[in-house]
């Protein structure tokens, strides 16, 4: 498709279509069509990236949230595809102190968060339980005696030290009515979590978009100083965004996936940008992961991201 410049009319037509049809048409089929409609999707990406104070932002955010809660997975995925754009546009605006334009995006993100932290059926706060299995008891993949040598060594003993599965929980998270400096990144982390839990079903374009937005946000305010560009020493007056470790870890999770599924180059540059920020701010938990990713790419015995 040849690029014809930003065309807001595409979006307004689409919005009109949604309004008219939402009750009648078969949701699933409709969702499929719009997810595959490059024209609409690309224009939406462009809207959030280049025209964050456009009048259309507000109705678009409203429509996206309507899709998200429509209890149809395809529609939900359509909204999820745009989550990187939503988060990116939100953060840029908040830290530029443009509180007015951010309102509708924030509402949409909050809506997604509030839906994500409760169980759909019961309305109870969601609590996820995870298990770290132990190798000391037999599983469908191994039997313990063949693993540990019978020589009494430290490591053999340590394996038996934890002879029970360790479980840990995440949540419950409370419902939130408004963004504050305290909860901002906690909310965004959960929204990104929702994105990551569907990431394999989302489009390559969306994952690449995630990577591109991330680089932009990570470098904002640090160009020419922390990030040595070719055009070094330019004045960068864009705001610095103070990410939290939790958010960056969730981000790396998504980027790691993207890296091995078609966005190798973009993913790698996010990792290296996160690395720079984490070293600068001594985010030790984040460094743990970036070190691991960088190292496993350097000496990986099985496959590079480019291999697919």
């Amino acid at each position: 498709m040849r690029y014809r410049g930003f065309q807001p009319s595409i979006i307004s037509e689409w919005l009109l279509e949604c309004k008219q049809d939402s009750s009648k048409i078969e949701l699933g089929a409709y969702a499929q069509t719009i997810r595959n409609n490059d024209e609409i999707v690309n224009t939406l990406y462009e809207l959030f990236e280049k025209y964050p104070d456009h009048d259309l932002i507000s109705p678009v955010c409203h429509q996206l949230f309507e899709f998200y809660r429509a209890s149809n997975d395809e529609l939900k995925k359509f909204t999820l595809e745009l989550v990187p754009s939503l988060i990116g546009a939100y953060l840029t605006s908040v830290y530029n102190r443009e509180t007015k334009r951010v309102c509708s995006i924030a509402t949409c993100l909050l809506g997604i968060y509030n839906m994500e932290v409760v169980e759909k059926e019961s309305g109870q706060a969601k609590v996820r339980t995870y298990t770290v299995p132990t190798v000391a008891t037999a599983s469908c993949y191994h039997e313990p005696p063949s693993l540990t040598s019978l020589v009494l060594s430290d490591s053999a003993l340590m394996n038996y030290h934890h002879d029970k599965n360790i479980t840990f929980q995440q949540g419950p998270f409370e419902q939130i009515e408004e963004f504050s400096a305290q909860n901002r990144f906690m909310i965004l982390t959960q929204v990104l979590r929702a994105y990551n839990s569907f990431i394999a079903e989302l489009s390559l374009k969306s994952r690449t978009n995630l990577c591109e937005w991330s680089c932009r946000l990570l470098r904002s305010g640090y160009k020419g100083t922390l990030f040595n560009n070719a055009e070094a020493e330019i004045e960068d007056n864009s705001p610095r965004i103070p990410f939290t470790s939790e958010f960056l870890l969730e981000l790396l999770d998504g980027v790691y996936f993207a890296m091995f599924n078609g966005s190798a180059k973009e993913g790698k540059s996010v990792v290296s940008d996160v690395y720079v920020r984490a070293e600068y701010e001594l985010l030790n938990e984040v460094l743990l992961v970036t070190n691991a990713i960088v190292d496993s790419l350097a000496v990986n015995p099985s496959g590079q991201p480019e291999d697919g």
Partner: peptide, 12 residues
Amino acid sequence: DLITIALTKHGQ
């Protein structure tokens, strides 16, 4: 490295 990548996000 893989263990680190899998577990860090969960704080273990």
